[in-house]
């Protein structure tokens, strides 16, 4: 039993998951990612412009999910890899994102290290492979 994200629901977030499309607030100029109906910075603006984020950022915090602690939809991944890292990345444009890390450095992950978004398989549900972003050392 896994967290249920329907195919249409996943599809609606494709601009964010495939292309890191953020929403630039026309009132204050800051970028919301993921999108909000009202800007989370000025709490006023409700009109936005699409901007594609660079995918460049730095590790703000990290954890390593151990095999037994993975949610069911990531169980196979955890079994194959033993464990997998999850990061909070602060993007150079400002927003923070939560993401898995691929190719973690052998010497360990450090807060502040540079990372870059890459396009990867996330998981599978309802027979459909779901793609999205993960981050790799830059």
């Amino acid at each position: 039993m896994s967290a249920h994200i329907s195919i249409p629901m996943y599809q609606r977030a494709v601009p964010q998951r495939y292309r890191l499309t953020g929403k630039l607030c026309k009132s204050c100029g800051k970028i919301n990612f993921p999108p909000k109906a009202v800007c989370k910075y000025c709490l006023q603006g409700a009109s936005f412009e699409d901007v594609r984020l660079s995918g460049r950022g730095a590790v703000y915090s990290y954890t390593v999910i151990a095999g037994g602690g993975a949610p069911p939809e990531f169980e196979t991944e955890a079994r194959c890899k033993g464990s997998y890292p999850v990061l909070i990345v602060e993007l150079e444009e400002g927003p923070r994102v939560i993401t898995q890390m691929v190719n973690p450095p052998e010497e360990g992950i450090a807060i502040g290290m540079s990372v870059q978004a890459v396009f990867r398989k996330i998981y599978e549900e309802e027979g459909v492979i779901r793609y999205g972003f993960k981050f790799s050392p830059a």
């Binding site: 967290a3 994200i5 629901m9 977030a13 993921p34 703000y60 915090s61 990290y62 954890t63 999910i65 602690g69 993975a70 949610p71 990531f74 991944e77 955890a78 997998y84 999850v86 909070i88 994102v97 939560i98 993401t99 898995q100 807060i111 996330i122 998981y123 779901r130 999205g132």
Partner: peptide
Amino acid sequence: DTEYERLAGSTFAGIYALMASRYMH
């Protein structure tokens, strides 16, 4: 947050672990 936190492969333990790492830092 199911859409983003969960689909990054995290659980509540993972979210609090992220807080702990940052607090340590």
